[in-house]
Design a protein around this nucleic acid. Structure first.
Lengths: 135, 135
DNA sequence: GCCGAAATGTAGCGATTGCTACATCTGTGC
DNA sequence: GCACAGATGTAGCAATCGCTACATTTCGGC
């Protein structure tokens, strides 16, 4: 568009999201871990994300403060209603991106990696288009 | 695939990239600004990314330390050979993603925003596929 | 040449996400 | 019931990216 700044909007929006990306990843992981093994522990998340349990601890505390997760000292982690809603939305979006990548011929391993990175940056419009094109 | 950790690889890779994403965005912006107005100043970058000049300052200093940018106090910012190479690669990748989004029917404004967010997370394999499918 | 506005630099703060090292709790096996 | 391994919590460090406030430099207009 304009040559001077070209477009500060896209960048600003992209960066803004970094905080919520973590929330989305964690909420989705908690949902999956609970579904898979009926309980989600700090260690599970640490393994899942490949970070130390300390990092998980702090992030879980933050997300609890944001009303997405619920937990108590030495207790498993669960999702609040708000967290469940977010997790469902993220799971759906993740699936759409993943299936779209498969549909255009990307192998499963690559699609899995790319979907993780891409999912947070796909607008509703593009997501809908992905869905339509997956058929 | 394994149920316990499912896949810590994708996540780790996604997060690892956050540092280099900034480098890529800045290098690309510097290249464009130099092309557009023959010089890139701190203020230009601040406007472009919608952040304060202080933030730009620190990031430029870091990228200079990484051998991507060159500058001197109160002087314009230029790209090193390494920086130019990275900028070219990023520009190309950005264009591919952007054109792909357009080709599947996304409007320009949305495609611009999504491309900014997505470009850093697209593997070479997927990128090549995007390119093939854009025709 | 001087002056003021704009650009740039510096100091110092906060949030987020990493880590290691160490402390504490839990639960299992004996 | 106890001890020990593993899980969890806490303290304190670093890097990155934001900011405001203030200091300094540069540059154009007079």
């Amino acid at each position: 568009m304009s040559s001077p700044a070209r477009d500060s909007e896209p960048h600003r929006r992209t960066r803004r999201d970094h905080a919520s990306e973590t929330a989305e990843d964690y909420v989705e992981a908690v949902a999956e871990l609970i579904a898979a093994r009926s309980a989600c522990r700090v260690t599970d998340l640490a393994k899942r994300f490949g970070v130390s349990h300390v990092t998980v601890n702090r992030i879980v505390a933050r997300l609890q403060g944001e009303g997405l997760l619920a937990t108590a000292p030495y207790q498993p982690i669960s999702l609040t209603a708000k967290g469940k809603r977010l997790a469902a939305k993220c799971k759906q979006r993740h699936e759409i991106v993943y299936r779209f990548l498969l549909s255009i011929g990307i192998d499963e391993a690559t699609a899995a990696i790319d979907a993780e990175g891409i999912e947070h940056h796909v607008s509703p419009k593009t997501l809908r288009r992905f869905e339509e094109l997956t058929d």
